[in-house]
């Protein structure tokens, strides 16, 4: 009932047709090396970026960075660090003490350091948020310039959930002082292959 009431009111009040503008990505494209731009932006927003030749090469870096990580869930082939069986997890609470999650990223965006993570890359949607530390492994050639180039890549994306992740979780709600690590991960490491 309210639906028709609302829609009637909208139709009565909305103005005559106004055209939809075209977006021209070229207007906003910056020159320069995408990988370098991506790395510098992501670093500026609190991410740790590593250039590696293969997923395996991330292994020693991760071990050195998280020597005390006891509970690790890894979704990237070639990195043998799993201490839990992803399929055995039945609730978010079981991941509360997860020290490290390692997941694949689909592509990155140079202008803002964001990485697209589709649901299919995760065992559960909560994974990249609940973990204490997050590592994303990504093909370094898969970086676009701006968001205008990112969305065409998602044209056929049909999954139920996906997220752009840009850096570790953060807050500045106490007198505007920036604190890295709010409700999500305390750190983000990105491995560019």
């Amino acid at each position: 009932m309210s639906k028709s009431k609302i829609l009637d009111s909208i139709r009565k009040n909305q103005p005559g047709a106004i055209p939809l503008p075209e977006i021209d990505p070229a207007l906003f494209a910056d020159e320069g090396n995408l990988r370098e731009a991506f790395t510098s932006v992501l670093t500026a927003i609190g991410g740790n970026v590593h250039a590696v030749n293969s997923p395996e090469a991330a292994l020693p870096i991760l071990k050195a960075a998280f020597p005390d990580a006891a509970k690790i869930l890894c979704r990237v082939e070639g990195i043998d660090l799993n201490t839990v069986d992803p399929d055995s997890i039945t609730s978010a609470a079981e991941l509360d003490d997860l020290d490290l999650a390692i997941i694949p990223g689909a592509f990155g965006v140079a202008e803002n350091g964001a990485i697209w993570v589709p649901e299919s890359a995760l065992s559960r949607r909560v994974l990249p948020f609940i973990t204490a530390h997050l590592a994303i492994v990504m093909d370094g050639s898969q970086i676009v310039g701006t968001m205008h180039e990112a969305y065409p890549r998602l044209k056929d994306f049909r999954e139920g959930f996906g997220v752009f992740i840009a850096g570790p979780s953060k807050t500045a709600d106490i007198e505007q002082s920036l604190v890295i690590g709010a409700h999500g991960p305390l750190s983000l490491s990105v491995f560019l292959i």
Partner: peptide, 16 residues
């Protein structure tokens, strides 16, 4: 806030 993008831009389409 003068950030290039928020940390999370979560795209929901269907329930888990």
């Amino acid at each position: 806030t003068g950030q290039p993008i928020t940390t999370y831009s979560s795209h929901f389409r269907a329930p888990a």
